[in-house]
């Protein structure tokens, strides 16, 4: 016995941020590719056009990142709760989740994690998003901003070990984002339907499959003030 429940997990500001950010980062990856390999890649015509677009997209991503972190820290105050893995997550959660992705998923077992507004990410997601959002993205933003002002910031470059150090880090970080994108988009299709995770990123509502007899993990959903919406798409 089981039924479906709708849970409101992704507030509007987060959704707007996410798609702005996603669009920005994809633009950055493609323009970045042309900027590094202009003799092989020419997507945007002139080199200058690629650079201008890259700088603009970088600025958009930087601003949207500031808004994102501001929203989670100041308005929603849920950054730590949602994104920092608990000790329990690190000790067992991550392994349980990995075990699911690499084995029990193929056997048709259900996902051990259930999204609720308070615990929207599984332990692996938490760890990955934490690294991406609080370490890699700030680093890539800072290195990118510095690279937009090479001549005026030359002193800083000397302190940081030279322009090559900075360019090299920026490039490797960008490669990490590209790698993350593949994994991220793919994992997002692993819901109970391929689009199940994309819908909440669009309209905020996550569809949860609840095993009535166990009730496990659904407790929070019942205390959710929002009404259940069964047939919402």
């Amino acid at each position: 016995m089981r039924h479906n429940e709708m849970v409101y997990v992704t507030p509007l500001p987060v959704r707007i941020w996410h798609w702005l950010n996603a669009f920005g980062i994809v633009t950055l990856c493609v323009t970045g590719l042309q900027i590094r390999f202009p003799d092989y890649v020419n997507v945007f015509g002139a080199y200058k056009a690629a650079i201008r677009l890259h700088n603009t997209a970088g600025t958009v991503v930087s601003i949207s990142y500031t808004l994102w972190i501001g929203y989670y820290l100041v308005v929603a105050r849920s950054l730590i709760k949602l994104y920092v893995p608990t000790l329990e997550d690190l000790k067992t959660g991550i392994f349980r989740q990995a075990y699911f992705y690499f084995l029990t998923y193929f056997l048709g077992k259900p996902n051990p994690h259930h999204s609720t507004p308070d615990s929207k990410f599984n332990p692996m997601q938490k760890a990955a998003y934490l690294v991406i959002m609080l370490i890699l993205l700030p680093l890539v933003i800072v290195s990118g901003i510095l690279l937009m002002y090479v001549a005026p910031l030359r002193e800083l470059f000397l302190l940081l070990g030279g322009i090559k150090m900075l360019v090299g880090s920026h490039f490797l970080l960008a490669c990490c984002f590209t790698a993350f994108l593949f994994v991220h988009i793919y994992l997002a299709t692993l819901g109970h339907t391929p689009l199940a995770h994309f819908k909440p990123m669009w309209n905020g509502w996550e569809e949860e499959v609840i095993e009535d007899d166990t009730g496990d993990g659904a407790g929070d959903a019942h205390s959710d003030p929002k009404p259940e919406r069964k047939d919402m798409v």
Partner: peptide
Amino acid sequence: PDFYMMGSTRSTALNIIGALI
């Protein structure tokens, strides 16, 4: 360390590491 010309002075070693990632 202080001379880098975008597009032309990229290091092959770094490209390989990036491609592996």
